[in-house]
Design a protein around this nucleic acid. Structure first.
Length: 481
RNA sequence: GGCGCAUUCGUCUAGCGGUUAGGACACCGCCCUCUCAAGGCGGAGAUCACGGGUUCGAAUCCCGUAUGCGCUACCA
């Protein structure tokens, strides 16, 4: 039997970190087992689902490289892949259950239900549905219909026995039926609820392994009951621990950016997101932290997924992104960084070769691509802004003027303006003026870059060019006066 | 309230009856050094949630307790 797994987001927003990880684990499992990865859209909640969200989720998944074999935009043998296009299927299944006496119409109003629930809770009783409509006679039904009540369909849960869930990650879990109540499977408006639609789809789409978040574990016995009532074979379950924020509650926008797209916008590499997310709840051995996609396919296994929730740690993600960036070929990095420079409004009118040299200088200094902007701005601006603190610190010193004058003179005197020559002449200044190298170079740095922190000075000056460097030093001198 | 799941350095984790409890990020120090990084070396950091068992021996097995989270919706 070929392995078939699915990722089934409800399109109520963007693809978030948790969803991406669930998708990744499914995808890896499919790849490792030469199986199929299906994308299914669970949009039965029409008030919250949007087409825009579907587009956004698809875009993020694609960018992560998690391609699917069947989905809303990829034809397959088990479509359609949007639940709102499968309504007739759910209806059929519901009718079947109704005919076999495994489901029934319930006329209780939401308000009545809510009231009973509250009362039960108050008395310390279980707030489960009391089964009022379970055995309604025809005439009673007619009476309620006459009142104008629209029924929902409830699934009859046998109150004896128990359900054993065999979970790859958690092992065997036992649930007693008596704690379950008759759940609603079809709403007043005829649409199916999650527990019902998901089962029918998973069964009809021949999903063999259901890999999903821990938050669905408690729903599993209900779903198994539906599988059995409909005569479907059971899939294998694997419930992933959730991703938490620093306060140990499920990760949300309160904690950090959760939309995958936000990370792309900041310049996190897809490979890094994949690598980091893979490690958030899974590990291969005791030391390996860097995995390529192929290595993940080869090494990933559900059996090694952790049981407890993992707290999202931005610092580690940043480190990993920086690490990947450092491994990149400069040419490649330059291409990747260009859109960020353009977006910042820089006019890049220098030769590609020079641009590459600039990028090479900041390659080991950035943790995400967007940071390139703040580190290289002075290369692309005609008039640089001076950092106030830097000016205070370096230019207010009495030696500043002589340092800059000497530097300007020496730079202007060079006939061959390259790093080696530049370094050679500038290195002489500390000795000549009897000053500490640090003071000399920091002063020049502020003059040339406008701030105390920049890429290495001599390379920076070379790339700025003789004319521009001298001009900036001149301007700094004017500032001092 | 009921049911379910979880609990090893700040964080991600290794461990699956005998280890000085290992690694990574973060942190601290030193080296390198024109700043910031990167890199190298070193350090601190975990009474393995707690309490009972079982065993010659328990982070590892069993039972409780606590805490956290999830489900208990005409959300998914």
């Amino acid at each position: 039997m070929t392995v078939r797994v699915r990722f089934a987001p409800s399109p109520t927003g963007y693809l978030h970190l948790g969803g991406a990880r669930t998708a990744l684990y499914n995808w890896l499992f499919a790849k490792a087992n030469k199986g199929k990865f299906v994308l299914r859209i669970e949009d039965t909640d029409r008030t919250r689902s949007t087409d825009e969200a579907i587009g956004s989720i698809i875009k993020s998944l694609s960018r992560l490289g998690l391609n699917w074999d069947e989905g809303p935009d990829v034809d397959g043998d088990f479509g359609p892949y949007r639940q709102t296009e499968r309504l007739n299927l759910y209806k059929e299944a519901a009718e079947k259950l109704l005919n076999e006496g495994k489901a029934y119409f319930c006329y209780c109003l939401p308000e009545e239900l809510e009231k009973r629930r509250k009362e039960a809770l108050k008395e310390g009783a279980s707030p489960k549905y009391n089964g009022r409509c379970r055995n309604l006679a025809e005439e009673e039904r007619g009476l309620l219909e006459k009142e104008g009540r629209k029924p929902v369909i409830r699934f009859k849960v046998v109150q004896d026995g128990s359900i054993r869930v065999n979970d790859i990650i958690r092992g065997e879990i036992n649930f007693e039926n008596k704690f379950l109540d008759d759940l609603i499977i079809v709403r007043t408006d005829g649409t199916p609820t999650y527990n019902f639609a998901a089962v029918i789809d998973d069964a009809m789409m021949k999903i063999t392994h259901i890999i999903r978040g821990d938050d669905h574990l408690s729903n599993t016995p209900r779903q198994i009951l539906i599988y059995e009532a409909l005569g479907y074979p059971l899939p294998v379950f694997a419930h992933l621990p959730l991703i938490f924020g620093s306060d140990k509650t499920p990760l949300s926008k309160r904690h950090a950016d959760v939309a995958i797209d936000e990370y792309f916008k900041k310049g996190y590499l897809p490979e890094v997101l994949i690598n980091y997310l893979a490690l958030l709840g899974w590990s291969y051995d005791e030391k390996t932290t860097i995995f390529s996609l192929n290595e993940l396919i080869e090494k990933f296994s559900l059996g090694k997924v952790t049981k407890s929730p993992a707290i999202f740690d931005l610092a580690k993600l940043e480190w990993m992104n920086g690490y990947y960036i450092r491994q990149l070929d400069v040419d490649e990095l330059t291409d990747m960084v260009l859109p960020f420079l353009e977006e910042a409004g820089f006019k890049i009118d220098i030769p590609r070769g020079n641009l590459k040299k600039i990028i090479a200088l900041i390659q080991e200094r950035i943790k995400c691509l967007k940071e390139v902007v703040g580190l290289t701005d002075f290369f692309f601006k005609d008039l640089i802004e001076f950092d106030q603190g830097a000016v205070e610190k370096m230019f207010k010193k009495s030696e500043a003027m002589s340092i800059l004058e000497t530097a300007e003179k020496k730079l202007l005197s060079l006939s061959d303006f390259n790093v080696n020559e530049i370094e050679l002449v500038l290195r002489k200044i500390p000795e000549e003026l009897n000053l500490k190298p640090k003071q000399v170079f920091q002063t020049i740095r502020v003059a040339v870059a406008g701030k105390l922190i920049s890429p290495p000075l001599f390379e920076t000056i070379e790339l700025l060019g003789q004319e521009k460097s001298a001009e900036r030093i001149k301007r700094a001198k004017e500032m001092i006066n």
